[in-house]
């Protein structure tokens, strides 16, 4: 109550009003309302009747005018009502089923189509591409066929200080990845292995886990994915 009194002297009128209303509508009151309390707000007026639309106004003035438009509008409404009645029925039917089970079934079936996420504009498909045989192939990992270092013209030995690049060629437990995983040609595989060993030897890279900064970036990525509702990466 004191706070309310103080607030009535507050130069900011708006704040005082908000606080007054707040006090007025407190669920329980231990004291009787005093004269300093503001009067209760007047009962709300009923909302004003909606202004007649142009069509309705015209219809009042001249019943013949715009009758066609009104008729068409009514007809469209009726069509919409009948058209979506079946959809509404279906949705109600689905809601009556256990929704979680339906979603689970959909998700399970979707997981069996791993290419769903990989389609790109301009892809051409034949019936075979939507078959189970193809789906199995798309779920399998394949190592890169091109040597990335050759394509980019980078010498991996010169990049030993680049821990993010080195981490790409290490497992999370700190082992150097095999050539069949990295897809490098023999020369570059030797070079990247040497660069990793060099970095570990110099103490730039941990030997039994990923670089802490890489771990941090991964954790942050995971958090944002979860925040955006994308779920964990499969």
């Amino acid at each position: 109550m004191r706070a309310a009194m103080m607030n009535t002297q507050c130069p900011l009128r708006v704040t005082s009003k908000i606080i007054r209303i707040k006090y007025l509508y407190r669920p329980f009151s231990t004291t009787l309302p005093t004269s300093s309390d503001p009067p209760p707000p007047p009962p709300q007026r009923p909302p004003p009747a909606p202004l007649p639309s142009n069509i309705a106004r015209n219809a009042i003035r001249d019943p013949k005018r715009d009758a066609g438009i009104a008729f068409a509008k009514n007809m469209m409404k009726e069509i919409d009502r009948t058209r979506y009645a079946t959809v509404r029925e279906y949705d109600a039917h689905r809601a009556s089923l256990s929704d979680a089970a339906w979603d689970g079934r959909a998700r399970d079936l979707e997981r069996k189509m791993p290419r769903t996420l990989k389609w790109k504009v301009g892809d051409v498909y034949a019936p075979h591409d939507l078959s189970a045989v193809e789906a199995r192939k798309w779920s399998r990992r394949k190592s890169s066929e091109r040597d990335v270092f050759d394509v980019l013209g980078i010498n991996p030995l010169e990049e030993y200080k680049n821990f993010s690049m080195m981490s790409e060629y290490m497992t999370p437990m700190g082992r150097i990845k095999h050539r069949r995983e990295t897809g490098l040609r023999a020369v570059n595989q030797r070079k990247i292995a040497k660069a990793i060993r060099r970095a570990v030897g110099m103490g730039l890279l941990p030997s039994v886990h990923e670089h802490p900064e890489v771990l941090e970036v991964k954790a942050r990525e995971r958090a944002t994915r979860l925040e955006n509702g994308l779920g964990p990466r499969r």
Binding site: D123, V133, W138, R141, S143, S144
Partner: peptide, 11 residues
């Protein structure tokens, strides 16, 4: 650099 998913028999 990481493994990719594709099919060699896809159209």
């Amino acid at each position: 650099a990481s493994a990719n998913f594709e099919s060699d028999t896809a159209t």
